[in-house]
Amino acid sequence: MSAAGFLKRVAQVLEDRGAAYGDPKTQMEAIARRWSITLGTPVSAQQVALCMIDLKLARLAHDPNYADGPIDVIGYAALIPEIIRGPRS
């Protein structure tokens, strides 16, 4: 798959996940609130995205051939600007 094709696939996954789970900023903020309680320290929505990237990278280190791993890493990275400033119209 070409780089452009790969990025189109990432965009489709983001669209599908948005339809399934709702606004990414809202979801990451909800996860951050839960993790803050669990960890006993404040966690931001941006940190949630970064931790999810780290989780995906750790899994890829174990199985670098897992096809969805790079899609997920790039997808979470692509969400960070949206989480910080909200979606653009």
Rank of each mutant, 00 (worst) to 15 (best):
E29P: 05
G40C: 15
Y76C: 01
E15K: 05
F6L: 08
S36Q: 03
C51L: 13
R33K: 15
P70A: 14
K25S: 09
I37F: 14
Q12I: 00
A11L: 05
Y76K: 00
L14P: 06
Q12R: 09
A3C: 08
A30G: 14
L39K: 07
P42M: 00
L39C: 05
A3L: 14
A4N: 15
Y21E: 14
N65F: 11
K25R: 14
E82I: 06
Y76F: 08
P64W: 14
D16I: 01
A49I: 03
L57D: 00
I37Q: 15
Y76S: 00
G22L: 09
K56L: 06
Q46Y: 07
P64M: 13
D63G: 07
M52H: 07
V43D: 00
M52N: 07
A3I: 10
A61K: 09
A11H: 06
V43M: 02
R34G: 10
Y21F: 15
D68Y: 10
F6I: 07
P42E: 02
I74C: 15
V10Q: 11
T26F: 12
D72G: 04
A45I: 02
V73W: 04
Y76G: 00
D63C: 08
T41D: 02
L50Y: 07
S36K: 05
L55E: 08
W35A: 14
W35D: 09
I74S: 08
